[in-house]
Computed example of a mutant assay.
Amino acid sequence: MTIRFSLSLISTVFLVAGCAAGGGVGEYGMGDDAAVIKASRNRETARVSRAELEQHRRQRIAAAEEIDLANKRRQAKNEEINDTLGTVNKAVNVLGNLRWLTRVW
């Protein structure tokens, strides 16, 4: 019983240590991608036309505008929530003050 537990504990420790050390599968392909990029440089097929560059620029602008709009919506929603919470807080303070005044009188 203790031998099985010890073996499973040791294998778990090695597994966790291996995962923490890195060496993921994604790192193996990086060198291959770099080699392909270097090999295809200055080839006619690797060049991008002006129309493609303009399309990429328009897509980047559109994506940036979408992100900006999403941020503005999020900010407006947060301000709306904060305003509501501020109103509730003021109402609670008013009720607390009224309660205090009724005790005094």
Rank of each mutant, 00 (worst) to 15 (best):
residue 83 D to P: 00
residue 28 Y to C: 00
residue 28 Y to E: 01
residue 13 V to P: 00
residue 22 G to T: 06
residue 13 V to C: 02
residue 91 A to L: 14
residue 93 N to Y: 09
residue 72 K to E: 06
residue 61 I to K: 06
residue 6 S to A: 08
residue 35 A to C: 07
residue 52 E to T: 14
residue 95 L to W: 06
residue 11 S to E: 11
residue 97 N to I: 05
residue 33 D to R: 02
residue 88 V to F: 05
residue 36 V to M: 05
residue 22 G to A: 13
residue 22 G to R: 03
residue 39 A to K: 05
residue 9 L to Q: 00
residue 77 K to H: 12
residue 67 I to F: 04
residue 64 A to W: 02
residue 59 Q to G: 10
residue 22 G to Q: 07
residue 88 V to H: 07
residue 14 F to E: 12
residue 81 I to T: 07
residue 23 G to A: 12
residue 90 K to C: 08
residue 43 R to C: 14
residue 83 D to I: 12
residue 56 H to D: 12
residue 41 R to Y: 03
residue 27 E to F: 11
residue 5 F to D: 03
residue 19 C to L: 09
residue 55 Q to R: 10
residue 22 G to M: 08
residue 44 E to P: 05
residue 64 A to M: 06
residue 63 A to T: 04
residue 35 A to L: 08
residue 50 R to H: 06
residue 40 S to V: 04
residue 14 F to K: 04
residue 43 R to G: 12
residue 102 T to M: 13
residue 105 W to H: 09
residue 88 V to N: 13
residue 29 G to V: 03
residue 74 R to V: 03
residue 52 E to W: 06
residue 62 A to T: 14
residue 77 K to P: 00
residue 64 A to Y: 04
residue 54 E to S: 06
residue 67 I to K: 08
residue 33 D to S: 02
residue 44 E to M: 08
residue 69 L to S: 08
residue 41 R to V: 01
residue 37 I to R: 14
residue 93 N to L: 11
residue 77 K to L: 05
residue 49 S to L: 10
residue 92 V to M: 10
residue 75 Q to F: 02
residue 16 V to G: 05
residue 57 R to S: 13
residue 42 N to F: 04
residue 27 E to L: 13
residue 90 K to P: 00
residue 78 N to A: 15
residue 45 T to L: 11
residue 87 T to D: 10
residue 4 R to V: 01
residue 94 V to C: 12
residue 97 N to R: 06
residue 86 G to M: 12
residue 105 W to N: 15
residue 56 H to A: 15
residue 39 A to C: 04
residue 31 G to D: 09
residue 91 A to R: 09
